[in-house]
């Protein structure tokens, strides 16, 4: 008798259920005690410090390119003096957090997915489990928290570098001074521009870490599954970043800009 195919919606519901269980296991282990501080610090270094160069270069180019792209349009309207303000508000509120989170999804989520996936294939996670240790606490809690902690920091650093990139572009074309440029940037920003942007990056970081861990931890036991886990982690984390961003914009608009 031919094996009956499982309908797609059932598989989807099963996957949602699995993620729900993994999510609750994460929180149960988060508050269980015996937090792995040394592994958390190591992950902060791996996730944060090792992503800094990539985030810095990308942010710098983004700031530089945005000014070069915006300048002709604003020049036409006679609003050239608005360039620092436009860049600062758009970069801090939206472009910086989303672009940096997407970069982190590509680098960090795939890295975590592949690392945990290969640990699964080589039976390291099983070994941890049968020894009586808690792999969720050691591998998952530390990585998810480290990403939720480091992505906001990377975003703040990236924002500053992006604005600096914008300054270099503007200085090259319009000969604006460093102090005037940053005075204009900072005076155009309010605390409420920065706060929601930072808060949403915590959720971005959480999504990146969680999806990377979930995909890696639940990968199959074949070498092919390591690649699939890494790939699927990037795609899913990127999707979650846009979903969270859309929600965050709505919530921020209702709370602060009505």
């Amino acid at each position: 008798m031919a094996e009956q195919a499982i309908p797609g919606y059932k598989k989807w519901l099963e996957a949602v259920g699995d993620q729900g269980v993994f999510f609750s296991s994460f929180f149960r282990n988060l508050f269980r005690g015996g937090f792995e501080w040394s592994e958390f610090v190591r992950q902060c270094y791996e996730i944060g410090y090792r992503s800094m160069m990539l985030v810095g270069i990308t942010s710098f180019i983004m700031g530089l390119v945005l000014i070069l792209q915006l300048r002709p349009s604003l020049l036409e309207l006679g609003a050239e003096s608005m360039l620092p303000r436009t860049l600062a508000v758009s970069f801090i509120r939206e472009i910086g957090p989303v672009i940096i989170a997407i970069i982190c999804a590509g680098k960090v989520a795939s890295g975590i997915g592949a690392e945990l996936g290969s640990m699964k294939v080589t039976e390291q996670i099983d070994a941890m489990e049968v020894s009586g240790a808690n792999p969720l606490q050691y591998l998952v809690v530390t990585r998810v928290l480290a990403t939720a902690f480091m992505v906001p920091l990377l975003t703040l650093i990236g924002d500053a570098i992006g604005l600096f990139g914008g300054f270099l572009a503007l200085n090259f074309t319009d000969d604006i001074s460093f102090s005037l440029y940053f005075t204009k940037c900072i005076s155009s920003l309010e605390f409420m521009d920065l706060l929601p942007a930072v808060v949403k990056t915590i959720f971005f970081g959480f999504a990146i870490g969680f999806v990377g861990c979930y995909k890696g931890y639940n990968s199959n036991k074949g070498t092919e599954s390591v690649g699939l886990a890494a790939n699927s982690a990037v795609v899913t984390a990127s999707l979650w970043i846009f979903v969270i961003d859309a929600l965050a914009v709505q919530i921020t608009s209702i709370l602060f800009y009505r």
């Binding site: 080589t122 390291q124 070994a127 489990e129 049968v130 020894s131 009586g132």
Partner: peptide, 18 residues
């Protein structure tokens, strides 16, 4: 967990944490 502490399990690959 208590039981697993009393049982040692050697995996095919050794399963060292790399």
């Amino acid at each position: 967990k208590e039981l697993r502490i009393k049982i040692g399990f050697l995996f095919q690959s050794g399963a060292l944490y790399d």
